[in-house]
Amino acid sequence: MSTTTRISTAERLGRSFGRGWRAYVRGERRASNWLVSKGVPVAGATVLLWLVKLVVLGVLLYSAFWLALLLVCVVAVGWAANQSHSDEEFHLQFPTTLEELRETPGYDPNLYNDTSHEMYKDDD
């Protein structure tokens, strides 16, 4: 049995996030120093870096909004497609048999070429 202590996955993940955060802070400090070396005042460099952060945050929120809206639309379409109707509830809006057609108001056998109807008149 080994006596070495192994770090957990959570600790490993936390360390990698910490390394990434430190790298980001170093890069931000380097960018700020570069701006100051180019003649931008320290306050101006700070404001510029905050402006960049806010623009990036705005772009992320904008894209997250549209992705969320797209997800809501996909869920709504999926829900609507999942609504099943039984055959008993389904009724056609038009007659399906000749008897149903004859019972509709304003039925004219000449329009449907219904030669077996008593009101049918041949134009010969």
Rank of each mutant, 00 (worst) to 15 (best):
Y24W: 13
S8H: 01
R22P: 00
R22G: 09
G39F: 01
S37V: 08
T4P: 05
R15M: 04
T5V: 03
T4W: 12
A23R: 15
K38N: 03
E28Y: 01
G20K: 14
L13N: 14
T4H: 12
G27K: 13
R22F: 14
V25G: 03
G20Q: 14
R26N: 04
G20M: 14
A23P: 02
K38H: 10
R30I: 00
S37Y: 08
R22S: 15
A31S: 07
R30A: 15
W21C: 05
S32G: 11
R30V: 07
W21D: 08
W34R: 12
K38C: 13
G20T: 10
L35C: 07
T5E: 13
T4F: 14
T9W: 04
N33I: 06
I7D: 03
G18A: 11
S37A: 15
E28N: 14
S16F: 08
R12Y: 10
W21M: 05
W21L: 12
V36E: 10
S16K: 13
R12S: 07
S8E: 01
L35S: 09
E28T: 04
G18W: 00
G27I: 07
R15W: 05
A10I: 11
W34Y: 11
R26W: 02
V25S: 12
T9Y: 08
F17S: 03
G18S: 14
G39E: 00
A23C: 06
R15H: 06
T5N: 08
S32N: 10
G39T: 02
G14A: 11
R15Y: 08
L13Q: 15
R29Q: 07
L13V: 15
S8N: 02
K38P: 00
E28I: 05
N33G: 03
L35N: 01
W34S: 13
R29W: 04
T9L: 12
L13H: 13
G14V: 00
A23Y: 12
I7G: 06
R29D: 04
G18L: 05
R15V: 05
G39W: 00
G14Q: 10
R19F: 06
Y24H: 10
S16G: 02
R29F: 04
A31C: 07
G39Y: 02
R12E: 06
L35I: 03
E11M: 03
G20V: 09
